[in-house]
Amino acid sequence: MIDDPSAGSPVATLPSPLARRQPIGEWDEDALVLGIETSCDETSAAVVRGGREILSNVVGSQTSLHGEYGGIVPEVAARAHVEALTPALAEALLQADATFWDLDAVAATRGPGLIGSLLVGIAEAKSIAAVLEVPFVAVNHLEAHLYSNLLADPKARFPALALIISGGHTLLVDAHDHGGYDVLGGTIDDAAGEAFDKVARFLGLDYPGGPEIDRLSLLGNPEAVRFPRAML
């Protein structure tokens, strides 16, 4: 035997497997999808019913880990995802009052994002889908941003004009149908989120810069600078 001084504690036992709810490929309004998001510095797991109803949405932020560096360190982020995803999955299922065996599909962010972080979410999502024999769906990060409107607004539907403003992207998109998009325009240099983070850093504000600028902006004078207004 290997003499290992770091012996672990017993694993928490979860309920025993139940029969799958329905065969592969059959989709219905009650279909349960587990979504896993690990593209950046937040570890997130959610259970959504019928593509519209959020049963649970667990988000673990790593902000405190990256704060001392003044930005996201990819290796720190990847390590934190391995740690945070297991409890996030357990919590998301618990809050949704579901077990793994109730799931009809498992989805994960495919990118764009930090490669080391994406790999953790994709590896876990694929593994769970393999065990349950349900489809694994790899989702484009920006498409997910666009579709989040369908969750936020029950009346939202296609065709739609979408403006995506995130940490890494600023895009104007013509979303004419499910899965059918044309990019109408975008930033020619930094994304809006990047601009916020960089300006915050130069001003010596705390990380993350966005919320900090947002907070300070409320204290400013809105008439101090005259910005030109674009005429469309």
Binding site: H81, V82, E124, I128
Partner: peptide
């Protein structure tokens, strides 16, 4: 990550 997800599921 793969081992943990398999064991968890």
């Amino acid at each position: 990550a793969t081992a943990k997800a398999l064991a968890q599921a």
